[in-house]
Amino acid sequence: MKASMTDRIALLGRSGLDVVGTLGRSGIFLFQALAGRSQFGNAFGLLVRQLYAVGVLSMVIIVVSGLFIGMVLALQGYNILSGYGSEQAVGQMVALTLLRELGPVVTALLFAGRAGSALTAEIGLMKATEQLSSLEMIGVDPLKYVIAPRLWAGFISMPLLAMIFCVVGIWGGAMVAVDWLGVYSGSYWSNMQNSVQFGEDVLNGLIKSVAFAFVVTWIAVFQGYDCDPTSEGISRATTRTVVYASLAVLSLDFILTALMF
């Protein structure tokens, strides 16, 4: 079949409108989910359950990858810096890299893969099996009952995970640099303490991870809520969550870095 020129232009316009429409839908979705107080007595219980699913269950992957990233940073940094005879700066390098960039970014990417995809699939399946419509039928707002606790759980747990990631990474770096490669532990820590500023580096990293938490959780939950209620639709939505969230985190990271440092 041969589409005429005007048909193609119309198609282009329609997909553009679709993108803008989705964006608007996701904004309204976020506002409706977060605005106002929850009308459930057990709102705290719902939040705790989600914090467990989203935060606690992500601990293992965060700790293990933080440890290895810190170790590999120390190893690479040592190899490069020892060429200049300044291997005592390896602590400073590991700490600044983790706090400013790798901590928030890698945590957000892992979070999108580990927790974000699970959120999308769970909510998508709820939609496909019409649990969301049944909730509405019995007069419970699914945005408040299902979506809001998941959003808050994501917002709360990712900054905490990022901080844990940084600490484990710095500790892993110390293990490699000090215990295995023989950098003097006093200069590892003092170089780090002299160069890391709490307000500049730690807080900016924290702000970054809060922004990433917002974006990743929003994308994940919205993709689940907005997916086609078929098995194919759920699989596509899950893929989209990971892809969109990763792209959003990486591009947002550049913008935030340009603003902060």
Partner: peptide, 14 residues
Amino acid sequence: GLLALAVLAVRVSG
């Protein structure tokens, strides 16, 4: 998580 933040404040940024 909060303990990690405290460690970052005290031990890492000195």
